[in-house]
C-alpha cells in the first residue's frame, strides 16, 4: 500500500480507537488496559516477518529475540485478560449464605 493509503488507515484507526473505548465503564478499566496490551502483541507478525527474511546472524538472533518477547506479550496478555474477565461472568443472583 502506498504511504498515503497507510496514512488514511492510520487516521481512521485513531477515530475508531477513540470511539470504541469512549464509553467504557470504570469497572473494566483494568481488563481494557490488559486487553489492549495483548492486542499490541500482534507485533509478533512483524517479528516473524523480519526474522524470516534475516540474512545475517545478527539479524536472525535479534529477530528471534523479538519473536520470543512478542509471543510473551501476545499470549500472556490474552490469557491474563481472560483470567480477569472470567470473574465478570455476568449477573449472579444476590448470593445468600456461603458460596464464597
Amino acid at each position: 500500500m502506498n504511504d498515503v493509503g497507510l496514512l488514511t488507515v492510520f487516521v481512521l484507526s485513531i477515530f475508531v480507537g477513540f470511539e470504541v473505548v469512549s464509553k467504557v465503564s470504570t469497572i473494566l478499566h483494568t481488563p481494557l488496559m490488559s486487553g489492549a496490551n495483548a492486542i499490541h502483541g500482534v507485533i509478533l507478525v512483524g517479528a516473524i516477518i523480519v526474522t524470516g527474511h534475516a540474512d545475517t546472524n545478527a539479524e536472525l538472533w535479534l529477530g528471534l529475540a523479538a519473536v520470543v518477547l512478542a509471543t510473551v506479550n501476545m499470549v500472556g496478555g490474552f490469557v491474563v485478560t481472560d483470567r480477569m474477565l472470567e470473574m465478570f461472568r455476568g449477573k449472579r443472583a444476590p448470593a445468600k449464605g456461603s458460596d464464597a
Binding site: M1, V9, F10, F15, G17, A36, H40, V42, V45
Partner: peptide
C-alpha cells in the same frame, strides 16, 4: 504507537491498525 509505526516500516496494514487502536484507546484511558 510503536506497533503502528512498525506497520508503516513493514508496509503491514494489520500492525498499523492494531497499533493505532491501542495507541488511541490507551491515550484516552
Amino acid at each position: 504507537l510503536t506497533v503502528a509505526a512498525s506497520g508503516f516500516v513493514l508496509d503491514n496494514v494489520l500492525l498499523l491498525v492494531a497499533g493505532t487502536l491501542v495507541g488511541a484507546s490507551g491515550t484516552l484511558l
